[in-house]
Simulated assay, not measured.
Amino acid sequence: MRAPRADATRNRDQLLAAATRVFVAADAEPSMRAVAREAGVGIATLYRHFPTRESLVDAVYRDQVVRLTTAARDLLTQQPPAAAMRRWMDLFGDWIATKNGMLDTLLAMIESGEIAHAQTRAELLAAITTILDAGREAGDLRSDVTAEDIAAFLIGVFTVAPRPVHEAKAGRLLDVLMDGLRPAGRST
């Protein structure tokens, strides 16, 4: 199998970025035409890359999961573990917000088994664990908190303060959460 042409790869990446923006901004599932318009391409180009809404949702979902899982390692090379955790929480919030505009399709795909929810959960928990382990080793993060705890906290925060509408409130709640994740006697 030969590699896709550079312009085809660029178009696909442009479509994924545009779809992500449209999904974040949408209250309900947007049309495929809205995604093509946002990307600045014709509808035929969109359908050439993503022949169905499900294929587009799947690609955006997987792209976001990959970004989250690789971000854990990348952030740790750039920042101390506690700062990396806080930044990763923001990225998680972005991922949750992206799902808003594709929720019905995403839920149907999870229900049908097209998307393995358990695998995604395991990948995200592993990303959180990577940062937690580095934070414990550095003395930045408490040793008695699990990745499952953090995931539950994040789901709670973004349920009561969904992004982008409640960005400031979500930020304050995440800062409070980070204060609670630091060992006693450690501050920002």
Rank of each mutant, 00 (worst) to 15 (best):
T146C: 08
R67K: 09
Y61C: 06
V66P: 00
P51S: 05
G185T: 03
I128A: 05
E148R: 08
A108D: 08
L173W: 04
D58N: 11
W88L: 09
Y61W: 13
E148A: 12
H166I: 07
L107G: 07
A170G: 05
Q79I: 04
R37W: 09
L75V: 05
T69I: 06
A17N: 04
L124H: 03
E137R: 09
P4G: 10
L174V: 12
L181H: 09
F50R: 01
G40Y: 00
T130N: 04
V165I: 11
M178R: 05
T98M: 05
A184R: 12
I115M: 03
L125H: 08
V24S: 01
L181M: 13
E167Q: 12
L56Q: 04
G93W: 00
V176A: 13
A34P: 03
M102Y: 02
A152P: 00
Q78D: 11
R136D: 15
R136A: 15
E54D: 10
I110K: 00
L56C: 12
H166N: 13
V24A: 01
L125G: 07
E29L: 09
A18L: 08
V65E: 00
R48P: 00
R12V: 08
A138Y: 03
A122E: 14
D104R: 14
I96Q: 03
A170D: 04
I128M: 08
A71Q: 03
A116T: 14
M89K: 00
G156K: 08
Q78H: 11
V24T: 02
A83G: 11
G93H: 01
L177D: 05
P162V: 11
G156C: 07
S143A: 15
V176R: 05
L76R: 03
G93S: 07
A170F: 01
L125I: 13
V41D: 02
P51Q: 06
A168I: 15
G139I: 04
D63E: 15
S143P: 03
A83T: 11
G171A: 13
G185E: 02
Q119F: 07
M109L: 11
P183Q: 11
R37A: 15
T105D: 06
L76D: 09
R163Q: 12
T120M: 08
R87T: 15
A84M: 06
S55I: 09
D144H: 05
E123S: 15
R10G: 14
R62I: 07
R186A: 15
E123K: 15
A44E: 12
D179K: 08
A108S: 09
A126M: 11
G40I: 02
T129S: 07
L132M: 09
L56R: 06
K169R: 11
F92N: 02
V66D: 08
Q78K: 14
G42L: 13
V165P: 00
R2I: 10
V22I: 11
I115K: 02
E137Q: 12
T9F: 13
L177M: 14
I110Y: 00
D27T: 11
D7I: 12
Y61G: 01
S112D: 14
L141T: 10
I150G: 00
T120L: 07
D13Q: 10
A6E: 14
S143R: 10
W95E: 04
R21I: 07
A108V: 07
G139H: 05
V165L: 07
A168Y: 15
L154S: 02
T77H: 10
D13L: 11
S55P: 04
L173C: 12
E29P: 04
R163I: 06
E111V: 09
